[in-house]
Amino acid sequence: MDRSGEGKREEELGFERLAPFVCECEPLSQEDLEAIDATLQSSLPKPSTTNNNNNKRPFASHSPPRRSSRRRLPTSLIALQLPPSLSFSPSPGHLKTRLPVMKFCGKIMYSRTFTDVEKAVTKFLKIIEEKKRDMIQIPIGFDIEWRPTFKRGVPPGKTAVMQICCDTNHCLVLHLIHSGIPRNLQLLLEDSSVLKVGAGIGGDASKVSRDYFISIKGVEDLSYHANQKLGGGPNKWGLASLTEKLLSKQLKKPSKIRMGNWETPYLSKEQLEYAATDAFASWFLYQTIKDLPDAQEVADKSIEVDGAPQQ
């Protein structure tokens, strides 16, 4: 049966349906298209000249191109039709993605007089007692600050600030250089059931003991704790390096704050946030590290699996 007539009729009907969408304008000549193409090509970013075997055309087809009698649009016009998200050229000002910043977002309880420190510690102890209902040993993030010295032979200042944190909501910043250590704070520091955690905390505990003649008990160094879990040799981890390694966040340590005057009559907002974040990071890191399996246990299980008889 001859269907050539039907095919021709279907083609004519197809053009009739497309008629409302056809742009009624004069067709562009070849010279017009070449001129447009040259203008647009000059405004597009130059392709990289780096010799890379992986530099292939996006959406390249492995089938041979079809021949067509229709006039093709300039390649520059086709490129401009692609959405920005499909651009395969790196932005000239592209910067390396930075890690999110670690920051304490809870309530900072700042105290600078003997009475205020005593009251703040009393409230903190009530929170600790509530947590003891569920845990035998309560971890708190612990850190201290003091005024540095830049003269040879001059010892560093006395412990000026102590910060302690027990969760995501509460952090004490105690300005000890003005208040001293009340009796209830001393009892907290000497309570071994309250675990004080921090990076290099042994040195901090010794300094507090020398400065205020008290003994801090229940101390655990995050660096030692991390080495037990991570393996790979004894590494001396700092608080910032552990935060980056385990939490994928950056702990900012600006020198103007870290090496600033912690004996000032009143701490600035920046100093308070810095101090609270350090104590919070210590507490949070302990929660993260304690849930990790020991490196030796992982190695032993790996040996058991490798040594299992093959089926």
Rank of each mutant, 00 (worst) to 15 (best):
P45S: 03
P45A: 04
K46R: 12
T49N: 10
T49E: 09
T49A: 12
T49C: 06
N51V: 15
R57V: 10
F59E: 08
F59G: 11
A60M: 08
A60N: 06
S61P: 03
P65S: 14
R66T: 15
R67H: 13
S68D: 10
R70K: 09
R70W: 05
R70E: 09
R70G: 06
R71A: 13
R72L: 15
R72D: 14
P74M: 05
P74W: 05
T75S: 15
S76F: 06
L77I: 13
A79Q: 12
A79M: 08
L80T: 04
L82I: 01
P83Y: 00
P84I: 07
S85Q: 06
L86H: 01
S87H: 07
S87A: 12
S87D: 11
F88N: 13
S89Q: 14
P90N: 02
S91R: 05
P92T: 10
G93V: 14
H94E: 14
L95Q: 13
R98C: 11
R98E: 15
P100E: 08
M102A: 15
M102R: 09
K103V: 11
F104H: 03
K107F: 02
I108E: 00
Y110S: 03
S111A: 15
F114P: 05
F114A: 14
V117A: 03
E118G: 08
A120Q: 05
A120R: 01
T122Q: 05
L125Y: 00
L125R: 08
I127G: 06
I127F: 04
I128K: 00
E129Y: 00
K132L: 04
R133G: 14
R133K: 14
D134M: 09
D134L: 12
M135Y: 11
I136Q: 13
Q137H: 09
P139Q: 00
P139N: 02
G141D: 01
G141V: 01
D143K: 04
I144L: 12
I144T: 15
E145Q: 12
W146N: 07
R147P: 04
R147C: 07
